[in-house]
Write a protein that binds this DNA or RNA. Sequence first.
DNA 1: ATCGTTCCCGCAATCGTTTGCGGTTGATAA
DNA 2: TTATCAACCGCAAACGATTGCGGGAACGAT
Lengths: 334, 334
Amino acid sequence: MKRITIKDLARLLSISASTVSRALSNHPDISDATKKRVKNLARELNYSTNMQARIFRRQNSGLIALVLPEINMFFTPKLIEGINQSIMESNYTLITFISNDNKMTEEEIVDNCLAWAVEGVLISLSRNTNSLEHLSAFKEANIKCLLLDKTLDTDFPTIRIDGAKASYIATVHLLDNNHKNILGIFGDPNLRITKDRIQGFQKAHAERGIDLDDNNILTVEKSGELDFILPELLEDNEQLSAIFTMSDELLAKTHYHILASGKSIPDHMSIISISNGFFPNLTYPPTTHVQVSGYRMGKRGCDYLINAIEENLDMFNMELPTKLIEMSSVTTRD
Amino acid sequence: MKRITIKDLARLLSISASTVSRALSNHPDISDATKKRVKNLARELNYSTNMQARIFRRQNSGLIALVLPEINMFFTPKLIEGINQSIMESNYTLITFISNDNKMTEEEIVDNCLAWAVEGVLISLSRNTNSLEHLSAFKEANIKCLLLDKTLDTDFPTIRIDGAKASYIATVHLLDNNHKNILGIFGDPNLRITKDRIQGFQKAHAERGIDLDDNNILTVEKSGELDFILPELLEDNEQLSAIFTMSDELLAKTHYHILASGKSIPDHMSIISISNGFFPNLTYPPTTHVQVSGYRMGKRGCDYLINAIEENLDMFNMELPTKLIEMSSVTTRD
DNA sequence: ATCGTTCCCGCAATCGTTTGCGGTTGATAA
DNA sequence: TTATCAACCGCAAACGATTGCGGGAACGAT
């Protein structure tokens, strides 16, 4: 049950392997008659080119690596869908690695990418990655590398949403609906994206001349912490009329705890979130949010990467637009 | 900026390429002294083996393909996580394809798998795949192939949960809490998994001697249809005291519409679902469910596949256990 | 001194495809 | 008839790592 090779085809047709190869790839040197003969036999015998051999010879793998810290249910699915769309429109193949938020694993993955001679890398940094030295290997090997969203202060090109702007828009929406006492719930305060979003939250308050108590900025490393914090916090706080969350994951937890505390949305409590756009439709009532499209990040990012590979261009930072989607979780205070 | 090869190392050390190759792979024929010299230089020069060349020569790719119809937020993330765990414990590399529920794309993917000479395939069939002819190519090439969950009546080995049992357990739980009028909400009625789950639903009723009206079995091809069906259905139906949904996606929609209709859970309406186990924790109140672990399916399935590859074993069907997780969405009727 | 062993290492072929270069054929133009 | 040229195809050498086989060196045993 050996696999059919070009040599087999050549032998059966009494022509040379070179001719078969060229015929299959439509080389102009080959006559239409020969091409037809070759292709017919190839189809008949179920020939399929041996990629490994081709790549080995051509020295380009046609592989693009996707490196993720985890697969969460909120952001990742649409991201992958977008990347896949871009991949399918191209001739590249996607090879996936997950670092489990482990820096060492991430380093091994980088080695793997080199060994596989990938031509491009889309990487979302693990939570525990605090330097980008391991990525410099990509630079040296002239492997294009684009960071997704999470980033450090670096010159590596990144595609991200303007988090400061998104949280600014969300906060302004609450303030303009007369909410003066807003709780902002944020993720890991060490991450750049968190800092940006906090900054947007603050800027909105400042511009509107509303005092912002430090206690109204809540940061948690993992969303699970909210299970311990929110119950009391929601009990005690009479003034609080609105909550802003910086991600779907935090929204989910927060939404749960608001309902669990007996408050109704939006009558007792308004809530707004930065979101991928799917989960807010599952909550009741649907949650007003500033949409940041994971699909778009994947599609645009991967398109950009592929273009950079093929034209051998340098890449730069890229920012994605955001949009306020008004649903039913924010009420106007009087 | 050419990449360092084994020949380079050999030249620099004035030994043969064979020796370098063997030294790097710890062959007993090579002395420790030589091994050390080789490995040191390799590290120093940042040598990394050219996978394409190795694979080409060895004729085994070390690749496992994952073929999915889509990435949904409920089941897929944990599935991939499980698969990845298994992959990382092995020496294989994962290559991912998404068919977008398109049969033609799925066929192209199969061709791709052959071209890449993958050694194993984990495939979740697209919604529009109604025969498995295109998979027979795997059999002929002796490429191990394991179906994930969705399946047709076939002799291809499949790993799946016992859907009939899961829905039986869920239904019995409702019946034993004195719910006599239960609405079952199911997915695409053409799929085998749907049929199984309906059957379990029916069997529970039959065993308990409870009449089951045909109108109490609702099937929808897409969960979006519920937006049109449920609002009226929940209004009209005074008898209805409980709902069973066969998946997270249906649960999400249903949960939403129950709340939207002004009913509270579980006081006015109980709900139970078959679930991956994550989403039920995000709803308020948390949803009682029969857990089917996507992670486990991925991990066990991929472990099984890898074992079959390495030992060249035939594969058989495999069923995953399920477990009732009682939370707060089911009340006991008097 | 001869033989047998063990330890190390090199030779050379091989995997399947691609591609630069050169060669043959037949037709057309001079 | 000869020169020219295009159209078409084959030769052979790569790409980098692996591996069966063979062989030299060193040593001990007979």
